[in-house]
Each structure stands twice: as structure tokens, then as C-alpha cells.
């Protein structure tokens, strides 16, 4: 009786899962494997080999990788500082890093567009101090910048969580046994935070790989990521079959990158953080 009740409580989520996860996936697969007449085909999947699509997926992988790397380089030292210094209001400082996530990410990206535009605030300041005018908006750099800005908290949180879990005694023991700061970092802190790093990398790389809004807003329509191609097929080209086919390929890339990460994540603690 108790068991049945428990299963009953899972009912709402079960309906949610069927309606909003399984059914849409089934539709995408159906569209991906059919032509407009409903005949079976692999051509929508094979379309990824088209030079235009190859170019955009390579660009997506490149920008996603750069974004992930920048986030990691920014987040890791920051987390070390946050976790090693025991100052007052420490949780408030962490909270400050998460605070931007409370605002709609589109609004934050739109704000950056105003800041970076030709006559924007950043350029006005640069001109005032005599550096002159720099073209920033509508470049690949601006897109990476927007991605880093948006996804950085996803890198900070898992790394920070894994860092505060390291017991101070562990570090003290290492030092007692004669390890220098560098050795402690490489031999103790890094292995113990690896699961957090992997979790952060996935949390940043996957949305960066699939994003299309950021590249549209900060790329000025000049940066074509694979997400933009899919969006165009659905919204402008109205070829849902090709759009679904490319979506399936993109999903495979996402699954592959997560599987790759799991190989390194031996203790399986990475995703458990979230």
C-alpha cells in the first residue's frame, strides 16, 4: 500500500515526462527521419555533411570550447579564494555571483548590446580616455563574451561546492608531510575538485554549443552557429524535417561530450553536485 502511494505521487512528473520530454523527442525523431511526403529518409541527418552545416557546427564547437575554457580559468582561482579565506559574509559573496541569474538572460544580453555598440557606453569611455573607437559588437568575440557572462555561474557553483567539501585537515596533513603549495594544488586540491570541474564544464559547454539567441543578439546575424541554422530551418525556411535532422545530430554531439566527460569522472560525483 505504501509503495503504491509513492508511485502515485510520481504521477504528475510521469505525465510531465511523457508530455514534454518523450513526446517532443519522438516528434523530432519522426520529422528527422521523414521527408515532406512522409517517406523514410536519412538525408536530413546526412545533411550535416553539407559544407555550410559543417562550418557552423565547427564554429559552435570552437566558440563553445573557448567559452568553457575562459569560464574555467576565471572560476577556478575565484573558487579557491572564496573557499580558502574564511571571512565574514562568505556566503553573501557567493550569492553575489549567482545574483545575475535572477534576471532574465535575454535582458542581460540586450544590455551588453547597448554597452558594446558603436556609440555605446564602452566606446564613449574609450574615446574619452583617448584609446579611440573599437569595433566590439557583432563579432565572434562579442558572442563568446556574452556566453561567458551568461554561463559563468554554472561553472562557479559546482567547483565552489567541491572545494568547500575538501576538509582543512587534508590540506594540513599534506603540508605536514612536506608538500609545497604547488604540490598541494596539483596532488590534492585538483583531484578532489575534478568532479566539480567536469560538472561545470558540461554545464557550460552544452548550453554554449546549442545556443542561438546570444549569437543572434551579439553577433548581429553575422555569426552562424548550428543553433542558428536549426532556428532558421524552423522559423524562416520552414523545413521542419531538416531542422529536426540537424537537432538530432546536435543531440548526439551533446551526448558524446557528456559521455567523454563521464570517462574522466571516475567517482561519479560530478553530476551529483547538482
Amino acid at each position: 500500500m505504501y509503495k503504491l502511494k509513492k508511485q502515485f505521487l510520481a504521477g504528475p512528473y510521469f505525465i510531465w515526462m511523457i508530455g514534454f520530454i518523450l513526446l517532443p523527442l519522438a516528434f523530432i525523431l519522426y520529422y528527422a527521419l521523414t521527408t515532406a511526403d512522409g517517406a523514410f529518409t536519412f538525408s536530413n541527418i546526412a545533411a550535416i555533411a553539407d559544407p555550410v552545416h559543417v562550418k557552423s557546427i565547427v564554429l559552435s564547437l570552437k566558440l563553445g570550447a573557448i567559452c568553457t575554457l575562459v569560464c574555467l580559468v576565471l572560476a577556478y582561482p575565484l573558487c579557491m579564494i572564496l573557499s580558502s579565506f574564511r571571512f565574514r559574509h562568505q556566503s553573501f559573496v557567493v550569492f553575489l555571483f549567482i545574483l545575475p541569474m535572477w534576471m532574465n538572460f535575454m535582458l542581460r544580453i540586450l544590455a551588453w548590446r547597448l554597452l558594446l555598440s558603436n556609440n555605446g557606453i564602452v566606446n564613449s569611455i574609450l574615446a574619452a580616455v583617448g584609446i579611440g573607437h573599437i569595433k566590439m559588437l557583432n563579432t565572434q568575440t562579442a558572442v563568446v563574451f556574452g556566453m561567458v557572462y551568461d554561463f559563468l555561474p554554472f561553472m562557479i557553483l559546482p567547483i565552489y561546492n567541491s572545494m568547500v567539501r575538501i576538509k582543512p585537515e587534508t590540506l594540513e596533513a599534506a603540508r605536514d608531510l612536506g608538500a609545497g603549495s604547488f604540490t598541494v594544488l596539483v596532488k590534492i586540491i585538483f583531484p578532489l575538485t575534478l568532479s566539480g570541474i567536469i560538472s561545470g564544464v558540461i554545464m557550460v559547454f552544452v548550453p554554449a554549443l546549442t545556443s542561438f539567441v546570444i549569437s543572434d543578439l551579439l553577433g548581429g546575424g553575422k555569426v552562424l552557429l548550428i543553433g542558428n541554422v536549426i532556428e532558421q530551418e524552423f522559423m524562416q525556411g520552414t523545413n521542419w524535417h531538416l531542422g529536426s535532422g540537424l537537432s538530432v545530430v546536435l543531440m548526439l554531439f551533446v551526448i558524446a561530450s557528456m559521455a567523454l566527460m563521464n570517462v574522466f569522472d571516475k567517482d561519479g560525483g560530478g553530476t551529483a553536485v547538482w
Binding site: 552545416h53 557552423s56 525556411g237 523545413n239
Partner: peptide, 12 residues
């Protein structure tokens, strides 16, 4: 469809 493809080519 041709237009759609040319558009992607230009953007990429």
C-alpha cells in the same frame, strides 16, 4: 529552398 540555402551560405 534555394534561397534558404544561399542565406545559410552567406551567414556561414
Amino acid at each position: 529552398e534555394r534561397y534558404s540555402y544561399l542565406w545559410k551560405t552567406l551567414k556561414s
